[in-house]
């Protein structure tokens, strides 16, 4: 599996990271190196092996579905790059 410039551009888009056109060939090459290293996994016989979901056998704890905190609007917004009238502000999403 070899990654070309277009695939690199598609991955960057999916990851929502802007990559300049001129940087794409180098990025594709890096991906190919790393994926080449990962390809070793194809040597392993994984027939009948369950993919790991939890490294320690544990049942996730459950709790009663109830409100445990709230009324923290100021704190929630305290670090926002742009907060207005109690909301996070972003560029226009809907035309």
């Amino acid at each position: 599996m070899s990654i070309d410039k277009d695939t690199a551009a598609r991955v960057a888009k999916l990851a929502r990271i802007r990559v300049e056109d001129a940087d794409l060939p180098a990025l594709a090459e890096e991906f190919n190196n790393i994926l080449g290293f990962i390809e070793q996994l194809n040597e392993v016989d994984v027939e009948g092996v369950e993919p790991m979901t939890s490294v320690t056998p544990m049942r996730l704890k459950r709790r009663v579905d109830e409100v445990t905190d709230g009324d923290l609007q100021d704190k929630v917004l305290a670090n926002a790059p742009d907060a207005r009238e109690g909301f996070f502000a972003v560029p226009k999403v809907v035309q």
Binding site: L41, V49, E50
Partner: peptide, 10 residues
């Protein structure tokens, strides 16, 4: 595949 290999490593 990586998660299966992880099972084998464990």
């Amino acid at each position: 595949r990586a998660r299966k290999v992880r099972t084998l490593i464990k």
